[in-house]
Design a protein around this nucleic acid. Structure first.
Lengths: 108, 108
DNA sequence: TGCCGACATGCCGATGATCGGTATATACCT
DNA sequence: AGGTATATACCGATCATCGGCATGTCGGCA
């Protein structure tokens, strides 16, 4: 199963192409400040995701002398993201079920 | 964030105390056959979770000459599990939002 | 003028959960 | 005799993530 940082990176890029640092901020927003990606995690993940064909480089821009490399999600990446969503929800639902059973036992 | 195997182990034990091999089967059920824990993953995770006070050994039984060590979830483990549920759901929800935004862009 | 934080990418060693396999032993089925 | 299920345990390998450092520009503050 895809891990949290990778999942959030895919989610960040899912809406529209975004560059590395933009993804960093987007992940922080999407997780309500809970997840702050390390630069190392981000850029190595980005390379890995491009290698897996989940992302492709959309374009490069130079703003104020700084390079911005935009990444776009592919169908492969969308499949991985949607599958991840299903797994996250299924796991959460299963755990809730178990917690509910626990309450049942207690209230007997 | 807690990873999938650890999360499912906690979920399995949440309803009632269970022994190692029982957890193995429970995790498989809870995930609809998707997740099959390796013995190595399970028993090292169990030791780790006991070390973190998320689980405690409830009791030991001998059935057919085979030892059964039952684990019980603690308040610490319950907190970790509930937090995990929230994170899984929040992530899934955020990703769904991003995918919906994507559709918006496309349909414009 | 000097320093700090935000922006932006990149590299690298360390950490740690999980993987994959092996070992041991009993019981049951074919 | 061989295979599957039960049950626990150990071990090296893998790999995503962590944590930190490096580089360079820009704008704000003291």
């Amino acid at each position: 199963m895809v891990r949290e940082p990778t999942f959030l990176i895919l989610a960040a890029v899912a809406a529209a192409p975004l560059h590395g640092y933009g993804i960093l901020r987007s992940v922080e927003e999407l997780s309500n400040g809970r997840v702050r990606l390390r630069a190392g995690t981000l850029y190595t993940a980005l390379d890995r995701l491009v290698g897996e064909a989940s992302l492709v480089v959309d374009r490069e821009e130079v703003v104020d002398g700084r390079l911005r490399r935009y990444y776009r999600i592919t169908d492969v990446g969308l499949d991985a993201l949607r599958l991840g969503v299903e797994h996250f929800e299924a796991n959460a639902s299963a755990a809730r079920g178990q917690l509910a059973r626990r309450s049942d036992v207690r209230s007997r």
